[in-house]
Design a protein around this nucleic acid. Structure first.
Lengths: 231, 231
DNA sequence: TAAAAAATATGCTAAAAAACATAATTTAAT
DNA sequence: ATTAAATTATGTTTTTTAGCATATTTTTTA
């Protein structure tokens, strides 16, 4: 972790979360934000550790995950301008998951007390944070059902589609813009790494995807959606 | 569903959520609350249906669940004074789960617009709702890992312990105060009904619990905790 | 109260997924 | 560039869980 110095970009142009801040709050917050850089695979925060900051990803990619019984469970992946760690700040307690940099990443972070102060003094901001949390809660509950009730193929298909929607595809219109190791794909999909490898191979044999090392191309999105839907 | 008439109890004495309401808001809300009664197994709201009210359970028990692939997934069980449906109201969208009365139940309910108005006009109330949601989100994420990574015995043990903590035990200090059909126990624990029956029998044979029809007594909580912890 | 329906108990079989093993390939480090 | 380490690929075995069948018990309904 390295602290960087420099101009802070106007965050309200990057994520609508900050739009409700008053002029005064904007000035104050800009003065409080720290720029922090993390290198590939560096830990950002730990499950159980008392929350100190909420963060907004500026560049790079981050994984949020929990350690299960011998296996990690990726809860969500972040792309630039996504925020994280805000739930723990609001709960005024520990983080309930780990965060680590998937690749070299730059984060704007804001101390917990500052964030909480905004939520307490600015009703519109508070309401916005709450709506975001309502969204996250809905996603989490849907996710639980997906991960527990779908079979391996359905879970993997769903993860692939999530990656398409989260990070998009390259110019060819089908190659995932996110080069994810099979282990992470497994940790997203609640399966062992070998099963992620095996099942992805099967998808390739069936012509649903094309594999070129870590580069995965989605050839038949419709069929993957069907596999995901039917479990 | 039956609408009842009568006095509304001062809700701020029943759940601290309402403590932050001003005198004016208290009067207004009391005038807006409806008393509704549901009979055993009656549906209260449906997944996907546009949210119209948030509710607070007055008496009885309620299950919140999602329909999975051929199997239900109980997300949480409610006891008196628990609130529900508030997430969908805040998101200003559909409920993302079903709610049904586990036994005859009485609910105080408040229209979505009224609830949202409170959250928008009263910052302290908004902050309280948000903290509750932060709690629910943490629980949901922990739950996902538990349900996906623990084995059957671990999941069942955990559900039993949850029931102890949620509804407590009878005077003998060990019989669950909640008489839950095996099917619901299965739906809480992400397993088939036969596996819930079978595994519970095993626990009985091992002396961890005693079964008397639907009455389940916890004989060795320590060991159940161990089974739950180790998966 | 009797009959029907639902829930529970238990055994057996089939399917799904994990665990293990080993080789090939790719990536990272020296 | 070469070696070492990590990742990916694929096959086999074992464990776990679901699915099905049937008997018994309990609960509900007429």
């Amino acid at each position: 972790m390295t602290n960087l110095t420099g101009e802070i970009a106007p965050i309200w142009e990057l994520n609508p979360l900050w739009e409700t801040l008053t002029e005064e709050e904007r000035t104050r917050v800009l003065g409080k934000i720290e720029i922090v850089q993390y290198t590939k695979n560096e830990m950002i925060h730990f499950d159980g550790e008392e929350s100190s900051h909420m963060g907004m990803l500026l560049s790079g990619k981050i994984r949020i995950y929990k350690e299960g019984i011998g296996q990690k469970q990726i809860i969500r992946l972040l792309k630039p301008y996504d925020v994280f760690g805000y739930r723990a700040c609001i709960a005024n307690g520990p983080y309930n998951s780990n965060a680590s940099a998937f690749e070299d990443s730059v984060v704007y972070r804001l101390q917990r007390d500052e964030f909480v102060r905004l939520a307490k003094e600015n009703g519109a901001f508070c309401y916005g944070v709450m709506r975001m949390m309502a969204q996250d809660l809905a996603i989490s509950e849907i996710r639980t059902v997906n991960l527990t009730q779908k079979h391996i193929r359905g879970r993997l298909a769903e993860s692939l589609l999530q990656l398409v929607h989260k990070y998009g595809v390259e110019e060819d219109g089908q190659t995932l813009a996110m080069l994810l190791p099979r282990e992470d794909l497994a940790n997203m999909s609640n399966m062992t790494t070998s099963n992620a490898i095996r099942t992805l191979s099967q998808f390739a044999q069936e012509g649903l995807v094309a594999i070129n090392g870590r580069r995965i191309s989605i050839l038949n999105e419709k069929e993957l959606e069907k596999i995901s839907r039917l479990g």
